[in-house]
Amino acid sequence: MAVSARRRRTGIAAWGFALPFTVLFAVFMLVPVASSLYMAFTDMRGRDLRSPWAVNFVGFDNFAEALADPKFQQAAGNTLYFVGVAMPLTLAIALLLAVLLNSGLAWFRSVFRVGFYAPVVTSIVAVAVVWRFLLQPDFGLVNSALGVVGIDGPRWLTDEVWAMPSLIVMATWRNVGYSMVILLAGLQGIPRDVYEASAIDGAGPVRQFWSVTVPLLRPTLLFCAVITGIGYLQFFEEPFVMTQGGPLGATNSVAYEIFNQFGFGNYGLSAAMSYILFVAIVILSYLQFRLLRTEK
């Protein structure tokens, strides 16, 4: 009797702790998640904002429309291009920096670590503005530096070929530090004697990197790849600030297209596109788990 009364009392207290979060979570997370699925199958538009229930179900029409839309196809291709280049590039540079920092030969380890991590804490909007200035073709720092060595730099952000690589370099610059810090922590978890043993077996530093470091770091690499990939699949601020998706849609991303369709008032279509992006995120995470899983 006393036990059950006590349990009920702690149950009430526990709900007291859980309640503020739970109410907000239900309203601002569960309701939107559920209603985005609902909206994706309706023809909801901006004028239905105040009467979200007075709309028609259209089945998979929004999904079909999105997938058949050349602009969306281009945005999807651009997004794959961005993720496909920026993610491996980010991980490779992060791993290189982490290995260099962990080698015991670096002189000012903490200075380097802080410096490499600094871009991660910056606002993407702010640094996108700064990069637009750096890449300005006539007086920007990049083309000025190229001019010193006699190279006539392209008009980076208004050139169909160079616009996307420009965004990729900027995103890599901003995100390398995050993976580097995590990989560094992973490297410090590899016992020294594993390296000593492989050195006795005659392995040089390059051989050690491929046959000791990379296999033992697999789970950490996987984690960084998933987190980086999920972020990159949603890239939005970079084209918004730097190119407005141009030139000729060359840097339009799926996220930017979702935002634009929302802006045009096509809420149903926009919600459907969001779900396509979400499915892509889930698939990418799954593929990475498969690819980077310890080899049997």
Partner: peptide, 20 residues
Amino acid sequence: GTLMVPGMVTFVPLFVLVAN
């Protein structure tokens, strides 16, 4: 279950909710 749901997926319905 919602740990990995990105803001990109919920902002349109969230906007409808907040507007209402």
